[in-house]
Design a binder for these strands. Structure first.
Length: 207
DNA sequence: TCTGCGATATTC
DNA sequence: AATATCGCAGAC
């Protein structure tokens, strides 16, 4: 199986309806789907392997928990938009907004398997072209790494994933057996919720 | 292979 | 003061 442009462009873009379901369901369903960003002369694509769900008012770990502010405003957009935020003074993180407009739920994209644009990813992440096996696996296996490789910043926050610049393609539908879950990483509140989901046999997961 | 730490924008 | 992170240095 090869992931060239022709293969990708025969896949169908996820429709609005996909994003309007409860956020945990959207999170699980995003596993195995293909995130695509079109740049000037290049196609960047990765298969989503690890995600975390963040709900609205009920979830103390969610950016939207305390209501709308300047930083989190895009998290309240209609499902199917992006929410990119800056954190630790260093890193950007990509989220996919879920549910109706004004609800404030999103899926943090934590890891992907690189498919197209590997050379671009390599330069942005390691400033070189030839990578070891280990480096290849580490291209997109963390939320900050994804944004570095795809060159995503707050400029790309609030974009519609049903548009032409960035979108998600329907690809794999995974069974419950193939999906692992755990506590979310790096939070202190609402830790008991098992809302981190990942593809069990993937080599492209965060640490 | 692992642990601790520094970097530092944004919000409360 | 805390945070939805990462890469590096130094210990072993």
């Amino acid at each position: 199986m090869s992931f060239d442009k022709d293969f990708l462009f025969n896949l169908k873009k996820l429709e609005r309806e996909f994003y309007l379901k409860p956020v945990v369901k959207v999170a699980r369903n995003l596993l195995g789907k293909i995130f695509v960003k079109l740049e000037r002369n290049i196609v960047l694509a990765g298969m989503i392997t690890e995600v975390e769900a963040y709900d609205g008012k009920s979830d103390q770990a969610s950016h939207s928990y305390k209501g709308l502010n300047k930083r989190n405003q895009h998290m309240f957009y209609l499902g199917g938009h992006t929410y990119v935020y800056f954190t630790y003074g260093v890193h950007y993180c990509l989220n996919v907004v879920a549910c109706r407009e004004g609800y404030g739920a999103a899926v943090l994209i934590r890891a992907m398997e690189p498919l197209l644009g590997v050379e671009k990813f390599s330069y942005r992440r390691f400033n070189k072209r030839k990578l070891s096996e280990k480096e290849f696996q580490n291209l997109l296996n963390g939320p900050g790494k994804i944004c570095q490789a795809f060159n995503l910043t707050t400029k790309q926050s609030g974009k519609d994933l049903l548009g032409d610049e960035m979108f998600i393609l329907d690809y794999k539908n995974l069974s419950n057996k193939q999906i692992g879950c755990s506590e979310r990483i790096g939070i202190s509140k609402s830790k008991e919720l098992m809302w981190r989901f990942y593809i069990k046999d993937s080599k492209f997961l965060s640490k």
